[in-house]
Structure formats: structure tokens, C-alpha cells
């Protein structure tokens, strides 16, 4: 078995595009679900509108990179408003169903033949990232960091991505330790109580939904630029659920929970995947009964089982405090 390949692939997943994209999505969810208790099951739609605003504006309509970014963020804000206005007055489970429905609407529209002219149908869009890589100050060449070797463009998007993660963490950290963050936690515990104390709960929930959506949408940009392509089916419900798994793994309502979760999640997923493939290639008995396509499914089986086991045995995740969670006797 080629251990250096296994290690480099695993490290690249843990610190590369995947971890950044899902880390940002989970940071947004952390503000919404972890701190405010909002069940946003449509986080993938926030990534989608950002990624597609960029891709469509640049590729299909000829606007510049920066306009794509600004419109993408505005689109995420608009989506939060559209989702929030009807649902934030409803019970938590209704919010979950409406957000998941809205995310599915977004995905179906993006992949539709009817709107293919703008969004490229099920093939997506792929020529929009030049404006970004033109900004790359790193000299052309390959850069070796430990066992990983990256092109200047890969290195650039990873650096930009981690800077965005750092920025998102800073914003979250400032927000949740302020009186504003205190109101959010109060809403998570009991929104009627907070209302009885003179707080406009609806406004705070809306703010949390918007900020969480905008932080998550940064992940959409990183996905689009990192892959240099957007594809509608990446923005399905499974991506949202992966972000939840990551948040719970790291620890909800902990500032660093989502990032730690994303790193470990992708190391486990990609690591197990590449080890399994190596075993099959090496012709190890039993394991090699699996076809390559079956081996690719194993990671999803692991995510499902892992999410269940985590939620049952360690709902506080890695960083959380079990005693704190046990107080929640609802």
C-alpha cells in the first residue's frame, strides 16, 4: 500500500477545499442552529445562490469577478429574507421542512432545462474563475508542503479559504460573547421567555439567519472557485446534512466546533475511502469483493452511521460539555 499517497490525500482533504467549504457552511449553521436553535435545513441553498451568482454573472453575463462576489452575498441575504419572513414565526419543525423545501426548489431551478441559458442545467457552469486566479500573487510553480504538492492556484484558493474561515470565526466569536449573542442563546432556550423580556425575537432570528447564511455562502464561493466549476447536484440536501454532521462532531455552540469538525470529518471520510481503495487494488480478500463504485458508497454509509452514533452517545461533540447538554430536559 502506498502510505504516502494515503497520507497526502487525507491531509489534503482535511485542510483543503472540502474542509474549508463545509467548515464555512457549518460555521453559519453554528450561529443559526448551535446558538439560536434555528433548524435551517437549507444551508446548501445559501452556498448555491452564492456560487451560481458568481458563475452566472461572470460566465453567462460577462460581469467582473468582484460584482459576482457582491451579488452572491446579496443573493444570500435575499434568500435569508425570503426564507425567514414566512418561517421564523413558525414552530421549529416547520422551519426545518420549509427550508429543506426551499433548498430543493433552488436546486431544481438551477438544474432545469428551462433556465439552462443562465445556469447551465445539470452540467453546471465552468468558465468563470479566471478573474479570481488573475489576482493570484503567487509565482507559477508547484509548492510542496510536507507530503502535499500544490499548484500555485490550488495554494492560492486554500490560503484565501482559510483566511475566510478565520474571518468567519472572528465574527462569530465577537458576536456570541456580546449581549447580542446572549439574546440568541436565550431564544434557543425559550423564545417566549425572551419575548417576555422585551426582545424582538423575530428580528434576532432573522439577523441570525442572514449572518449564518452569509457566512455559509462564503463556502459556496470557495467551492465554485476551488473546483473552477459549479454543478447543481452538489447543492442537494446531503450537503446540508454533512454540514450538520460536521457541526455536531466538532461541538455545536462552540466557536471552533465547526472547523475542528470539518477537519476531522474530511480526514476520516477521505482517509477511509482511500485506504479502502488501496485494499481493493491490493486484492485483499473479502474487501476486494466490492466493486470500485461500491467502495465509493462506503463513505456515505459511514456518515449516516456516524451521525446516528454521535447524536446518541456524544451529542455535545468533541468540544462540548456533556453536563451542559444534559440540562436540556425538553
Amino acid at each position: 500500500m502506498d502510505w504516502s499517497f494515503i497520507i497526502s490525500t487525507t491531509l489534503l482533504a482535511a485542510f483543503g477545499i472540502e474542509a474549508i467549504v463545509f467548515g464555512l457552511a457549518a460555521i453559519g449553521l453554528n450561529l443559526q442552529f448551535g446558538y439560536t436553535g434555528l433548524l435551517n435545513f437549507g444551508q446548501s441553498a445559501f452556498l448555491a445562490v452564492a456560487a451560481y451568482s458568481l458563475a452566472t454573472l461572470v460566465s453567462q453575463m460577462g460581469f467582473s469577478f468582484w460584482i459576482g462576489i457582491v451579488v452572491g452575498i446579496l443573493a444570500a441575504v435575499l434568500l435569508a429574507l425570503l426564507l425567514g419572513v414566512p418561517t421564523l414565526r413558525l414552530r421549529a419543525d416547520y422551519l426545518a421542512i420549509v427550508t429543506i423545501a426551499a433548498a430543493e426548489i433552488v436546486r431544481l431551478l438551477l438544474r432545469s432545462v428551462t433556465l439552462k441559458e443562465w445556469f447551465g442545467g445539470s452540467d453546471g457552469i465552468n468558465d468563470f474563475s479566471r478573474g479570481f486566479y488573475d489576482l493570484n500573487p503567487i509565482a507559477i510553480g508547484r509548492y510542496t508542503i510536507g507530503p502535499i504538492s500544490l499548484s500555485q492556484d490550488q495554494l492560492f484558493i486554500i490560503i484565501v479559504g482559510w483566511c475566510l474561515v478565520a474571518l468567519a470565526l472572528l465574527v462569530t466569536w465577537l458576536l456570541v460573547r456580546s449581549p447580542w449573542g446572549r439574546v440568541l442563546k436565550g431564544i434557543r432556550e425559550d423564545e417566549d421567555a425572551v419575548r417576555s423580556l422585551g426582545k424582538n425575537v423575530y428580528l434576532y432570528k432573522m439577523q441570525a439567519l442572514i449572518i449564518g447564511g452569509v457566512l455559509g455562502c462564503l463556502g459556496g464561493f470557495v467551492y465554485a472557485l476551488g473546483r473552477q466549476a459549479v454543478n447543481p447536484d452538489f447543492f442537494g440536501t446531503d450537503s446540508t446534512f454533512f454540514a450538520y454532521a460536521i457541526l455536531i462532531l466538532g461541538g455545536a455552540a462552540r466557536v471552533f466546533g465547526p472547523v475542528l469538525g470539518a477537519i476531522i470529518f474530511w480526514a476520516l471520510i477521505q482517509g477511509s475511502d482511500v485506504i479502502l481503495r488501496s485494499l481493493i487494488d491490493a486484492g485483499v480478500p473479502v474487501v476486494s469483493l466490492m466493486t470500485a463504485s461500491q467502495a465509493a458508497i462506503i463513505r456515505f454509509i459511514l456518515v449516516g452511521a456516524g451521525l446516528m452514533i454521535l447524536m446518541i452517545y456524544r451529542p455535545q461533540g468533541i468540544l462540548g460539555d456533556r453536563k451542559e447538554l444534559a440540562l436540556d430536559a425538553r
Binding site: A245, I248, F300, G304, M308, L310, I312, P315, R330
Partner: peptide
Amino acid sequence: PLRKRGTGLIAMMIVSIGLAILLRNLFLF
């Protein structure tokens, strides 16, 4: 067993999401 432990409704909802992902991919497998 989860009800007996007093697991919260949102926690159970997330468990069901995990179960859905697990089963769906077992079917696919």
C-alpha cells in the same frame, strides 16, 4: 431506547437523518 433515555426531539430528528443517509446508501450499495 432513545425515548426511554429522554432524548430530545431535535436530537431524534438528527438521528433519523443519519439513519436515512445510512439506509439509502446501504440500498445503493
